[in-house]
Design a protein around this nucleic acid. Structure first.
Lengths: 346, 346
DNA sequence: ATTTCAACCACAATCGTTTGCAGAGTTTAT
DNA sequence: ATAAACTCTGCAAACGATTGTGGTTGAAAT
């Protein structure tokens, strides 16, 4: 179907030169006379010649493309990150290939191998919520594939990591709820082994302890699918409200969990913030027009994507193997709205 | 950085065969004895050999990848479409490369050329809101690049197109508003030359006319950036409410416009639906928890992505040039919520 | 007039895979 | 026994771009 594009060979025959001369002329080699260079360049431009990147890839062993593996893209947090990734990649002339795991470990493995065998130059990853084992990444990395993790990272692999201040974000939000007069603060969070879960729990616990509020294990609920499955959220809310002492506030620890929880509470006719206040991690753009407007911990998603990509390209283009890795922590921002209005004491 | 992977040559020397024999054996050619085939295949598996896709691409002139050009991905409508695209592509073993125009004509052109020169096998496009001229696509198509358009399409180019029933969607929403008792229905829409704009306007006008409501040009407002720029929306709302006769309802004709309009009205302290009712096109997942919950025309985004991809792959894999193109129209769905509550007659 | 040396360019190998063709060896038919 | 037919395998040329090596020219230096 596809018809042949113009090649260096076409230019060569047309100009009565050899392909090597043309190639060198186009690259401005000193071996080629200025006159010839000008002639070649002009004709190439006129013919709208573009070097075949596949051939270049083969020759150079690099593909000038990086792959992204995220749980989902129909989620503002991740799509904002991808925006950041694209910004840098575009600038540095890398192609971006985006794939999703849909929170499935199996798809994560498949995608990783797929990208590896298609020889992308590097990988940008945020782990699926099912992923406890990262051998597939370690394997790829051993075989020379540069990888940078962001948001959901793993301790079991040595490489650059970019996260937001999950600890501080959770701490700030919890502290805010406490200051608003809430004392029985629950947390709904994602799979317990995810880095973000661990860190957000820690910040939450720290804030409680500093304010002499006992941490109640029953107030901490895990949703393995991070809010993708409404029933799961519905269930944990039911559990929370079936306790003898029910929470008066909830910290929702991830993007989808925040919106799904609000949705569920609304469907369950539980008034926010009268019956229960809410503060949550989310990068949804519409939290201001939610009912009620949602107090959120906003992550620097765009920034995170940019930073991760810069680090990745740095590894890719470094001459010598990179052995010193850093973990970059970006600040979150707490935006206070109606859902955490000061508690009425009655 | 990247270390050399195992090649067909390695297998050949190890097995004391020629590369061609190995290649043919791996493909199960009848030219190669069953015995040799077995030997080769086993060794290849043992060595975890993977053919270098770049070399294959070069040879075959195909890259088994399709590129997507959308205005934005941090928008549920488009990210849902991409989900659909990915689903089919994954199944058919195509790579998906996603790029954004950010509604810029210039970036659209650049992306198109970029993809063309990187020899993707096909292109899936939804036009930027700045795009009036589609020569860049026509050029690429002439040179053999299969293209399928979705959502925002152009009449100036002959190829498969997949859209939703914009006409009917707008008609339904407008009719609904009329039935709820609203008579002065405005429309806030995107750039006037976009296909979606034209069609949605037509449906809206049809519904008005059928109900003997005169179409008021002053009630039709265009936002060139489709809600990406809040000020633009703010301005048109101001204009609408500065009229001697102000609207009692607004049909917002695109995803971002719907949410931005609601946001602006809320900031401007204009009560919905008391002062003005709202119904809008959007695929935002959270419209149910908006304040007020939003009456929406939901598009079959996932389906649209799947269909467009199927058509594209059909062209790519067809032996003979495709000359018969179809335009597929998928049904929208109207979901009624609070923002278009029946008008109180007082 | 011969040597020297730039300047300019072409040859050919290379990246890894695929594939038409030819050749070697074996079997069958005459 | 010889020709024909068939099996199996290897050679070599592609795909398009890059690059080290080496060859040809002309002019300057001896």
């Amino acid at each position: 179907m596809k018809q042949r594009a113009i090649t260096i060979k076409d230019l060569a025959t047309a100009l009565n030169l050899s392909t090597s001369t043309v190639s060198k002329a186009l690259k401005g080699s000193h071996e080629i006379s200025a006159e010839t260079q000008a002639k070649v360049k002009e004709y190439a431009k006129q013919q709208n010649y573009r070097p075949n990147p596949i051939a270049q890839n083969l020759r150079k062993g690099s593909s000038k493309s990086i792959a992204v593996i995220v749980p989902n893209i129909d989620n503002n947090f991740f799509s904002q990150i991808i925006n950041g990734i694209e910004t840098i990649a575009f600038k540095k002339e890398y192609n971006v290939i985006v794939t999703q795991t849909h929170e499935s470990y199996e798809r994560e493995v498949r995608n990783t191998q797929h990208h590896f065998s298609r020889s992308v130059d590097g990988l940008l990853v945020s782990l699926s919520s099912e992923t406890e084992n990262v051998d597939h990444f370690i394997e790829a990395q051993k075989n020379g594939l540069p990888i940078v993790f962001f948001d959901r990272v793993s301790d079991q692999i040595e490489t650059h990591k970019v996260i937001s201040s999950n600890y501080k974000g959770a701490y700030d939000a919890t502290l805010h709820l406490i200051k608003q007069g809430y004392k029985r603060i629950a947390q709904i969070t994602s799979a317990g082994f995810l880095s973000i879960t661990v860190e957000r729990l820690a910040g939450y616990i720290k804030a409680l302890e500093e304010n002499n509020i006992k941490v109640d294990e029953q107030f901490i609920k895990y949703c393995a699918h991070g809010g993708m499955i409404k029933e799961e959220v519905h269930e944990v809310i039911n559990e929370l409200f079936a306790l003898k002492v029910t929470p008066d506030a909830i910290l929702t620890a991830s993007d989808r969990l925040s919106t799904t929880t609000l949705d569920m509470l609304s469907q369950m006719k539980i008034k926010v913030p009268e019956q229960v206040a809410i503060a949550g991690f989310t990068n949804s753009v519409n939290t201001g027009i939610f009912n009620p407007s949602l107090t959120t911990v906003v992550q620097p998603a765009f920034e995170m994507g940019k930073t991760a990509t810069e680090l990745l390209i740095q590894i890719i283009e470094s001459k010598r193997p990179v052995t010193q890795f850093e973990k970059i922590i970006l600040d979150t921002e707490l935006i206070v709205r109606e859902s955490s209005r000061k508690k009425k004491v009655n």
